[in-house]
Design a protein around this nucleic acid. Sequence first.
DNA 1: GAGCACTGC
Length: 710
Amino acid sequence: MPQESGFPPPKRFKGGSPLFTFPRRPAMQAGTPRKPPTVPLEVQRRQLPIFHARPQLLAQLRGLESAILIGETGSGKTTQIPQYLYECGIGRQGIIAVTQPRRVAAISLATRVSEEKKTELGKLVGYTVRFEDVTSDETRIKFLTDGMLLREAIGDPQLRKYSIVILDEAHERTIHTDVLFGVVKMALKKRKELGKVPLKVIVMSATMDVDLFSQYFNKAPVLYLEGRQHPIQIFYTKQSQSDYLQAAVVTLFQIHQEAPFSQDILVFLTGQEEIEAMAKTCRDVVKHLPDDSPQMAVMPLYASLPHSQQLRVFQTAPTGHRKVILSTNIAETSITIAGIKYVIDTGMVKAKKYNPGSGLEVLAVQRVSKAQAWQRTGRAGREDSGMCYRLFTEAEFEKFDSMTVPEIQRCNLASVMLQLLAIRIPNILTFDFMSKPSPDAIRAAIEQLSLLGAVEKKEDQILLTSLGRKMAAFPLDPRFSKTILLSPKFHCTEEILTIVSLLSVDNVLHNPPSRRDDVQAVRKKFISSEGDHITLLNIYRAFKTLGKNKEWCRENFVNGRNMMLVSEVRSQLRDICMKLSMPIESSRTDTGNIRQCLAHGLFMNTAELQPDGTYATIDTHQPVAIHPSSVLFHCKPACVVYNELLHTSKCYMRDLCLVDADWLFEAAPDYFRRKMELERDAWAGPRADTELCAESGVRRQARLEEPDAE
DNA sequence: GAGCACTGC
């Protein structure tokens, strides 16, 4: 029977009575060391639950064209299946590909399997991820990111190198996996039609989406694998919680007072600010607990945290301290921490939604799906039995969506559509997606590509232009590929390459909230009144000339590790330019032509200052604001282009560049002329009074240049 | 007037 914990809530939290009653359980010896794994690899392989299923599994897989493999975590499917297939000679005519959504997974799996096969990594077993290709002619089992296989498909739509493609972690439904489903399905069909070496497709997933996967791959049989997950007890709150943060703190301290300090706790929260605030609260509350209470090592965990601080979560807490990790959903899949006994799930996540109509991305705190909640729960039972405290009622849980909406239905599809065209999909409008994006989203993407000159419409067909084909060569958003391709005209390719690379790496700058003033003071020397792009360029130049030492990076709040990544991206992009025989020049001290080039690539993302001091986009007259992270935050530039709009508390423009209105009109006269005509038609109607609005710079420019202006 | 979930090529 459950027992009252008797934990008195910390005084500062009003109404914070215990949310859960604790089950009785035997007292644990504190600090019991875990058994080191000394079992030989070969024996370990035989101990996996999947080993017993090997004969039947192989017998079935041998005969099947495609199969869905459902296996719980710990079944060993990802490491064993490729080896089993190879060992018994299935798929010997080619390479066995195993895709992963994340780089680290591809690398560590390849390392593990090569150890099990007692071969050097890169020989029989290898991996390919961006910037790293550890394979050779001997490679027969190849782990790669799904994005990488997609890129390979541009050069070889039938994936002829491969005899078997295993799509792992399919339940995560990343945009790349979803596109690959279609590409692989097409390759399979095509190779069969042409009488070539057949392709075998194996979709591996946790226990979700089974029917959908099976239906999609021509009713492929579903094979189930037993897992080796430890039991996890789940607790729900009795009442609905209006304040999940307070509920989390109360529950955390309830467990903290009750459980041996050697048992770690993982709390799922939604973002940096929330996590840092709760970390502070926890550290404060601990000070006021009775002297015999265990200490607490509170560790925040989120992606923008510098890598060195992320690594802290893997260290054991000092003696007498309990490890408490406050994390975003990064700990759901990307980072696995050993020894978690308790999971506290707020049931909330910060996630992006996309509205194709307005092209607006909304970043909002929302409910997790059931699948996500189960994934979080699973983090408690990796080495031993665990407990999961859900800060919502069971009735509420039943109302959660069963699955997270696949990424492909939440994204701008311009990049995906361009890739599909480059893979020579016969008709991208009817592409066989497992979960179709909305027609609006597809239309918006094609419209964007058409404005960039990447596609043209011919008799209901969408065709890739030669410019579009060049754009597809870059691993970038089409707007940035276009900007690079335009840069020779403005003699600033070196600078544009730097800027685009900086923009495609996250967290180049470090902004610890506690040192806001120091950050601002030190950034001053780099700031350009021309906007964020030029400011970033200044920082990169400083980094290149004096900054490769750690001291400089620390003093200037620059993330050195990510800066090195920027220069890797840059050299990759530069190589692509060279292959396309582009002249690569530097504009040196002139920034005007850099901004002009950016204006030509980003003309779709223009906003203008309104008479009342606010901003509105040219495109849809959406009211927008300058993001506080921008160097132009306190300024009132008349006309800017921006990288993206993100709706949080307001609709913010991020990464701004000051531009001249006439550059924009030069960049896309048809686009702005059409916008004008549309508006003129609107004015002719009952809304004629809106003509009293201040005339925008771009519009004025359009009027001046329009050949048939009144 | 005041803020940035997570991947990947």
